[in-house]
Design a protein around this nucleic acid. Sequence first.
DNA 1: ACCCAGGACTGAT
DNA 2: ATCAGTCATGGG
Length: 305
Amino acid sequence: MIASAQAISPFTRSVTLPSGGLDLEATLSSGQSFSWRKSKEGPWNGWIEGRPCRVWIEKDILRAEGPDLSSKAITHYFGLDIDLSKILASFPHNDPWLKRAFAFAPGLRLLRQEPWETLCNFICSALKQVVQIEQINTNLRRTFGSPYHPDHYTFPDPQQLACRSEKELRECRLGFRARHLYIATQQILSKEVSLEKIALLSTDDARTELCRLQGVGEKVANCVLLFAFYRWEAFPIDVWVERALRTLYFPDQPKIPSSELTNFTQNHFGPYRGYAQQFLFHWMRKEWKQKNLPNQRKDHPTRGD
DNA sequence: ACCCAGGACTGAT
DNA sequence: ATCAGTCATGGG
């Protein structure tokens, strides 16, 4: 997988993958993180806990190269302490759709990312595609972040964002989201809302707090809870997941309100429903292609295939 | 040209 | 409490 030119530097850490493995491609391109880029040689370049990093997999070992990286931080970030078989066992046993979604990318894991950057990413995510959010993340880093190496910029902290104008944010191609991010940054900086305090709250209280931020509704709040606060019961419903729920689980009730869908997810998918959500999202986005959607519900998975 | 994208906010029922 | 209209921008 990795070229021999990729010498193991003193900064390389190795972590033996647990059972269940790790699918880097699925994990890093499934719309939870937006700062990882796959290099032509294979490894992924990105950031872990604010430090630049390069990761790849050799057999059942995860290699990570970068300054000040600990094996503990790598394990924590990629969620390698999570037993995926236990997650799978917690899913409803009579759900062929979820079973299929899991089988599509069984090494997909939820990351433990930093709250501030995750918050910004998802404020910027409204009506944007994943690739566009990645582009915005790059723009924000280059424009407001600090250079780490040449052409490697940290994600700007609240101070670095707040001391600029809303117009400068707009020039990062944020569109109408520029105002949301601008105001939310002020709210964080003034401590009107504290991400550190939110980390200590119950999931419901944390969600309420997050929703006080400009540009944060229920969906964005759930994304931050799931991808940065380790709340695996958070279940973000975006257009893809809503389409999956309606098409697969309620094919005969086209008028069912969204609130009922939310209710259903709470009762159906179990305590690790955030994982279920991510498997469904990834599967829908990569495998289904929108053009196939209307006819696929006739295709029951138990029939063959 | 047209529709869609990991939605949120506002104002009218 | 729901519900349509609106908000920029880029991909397909």
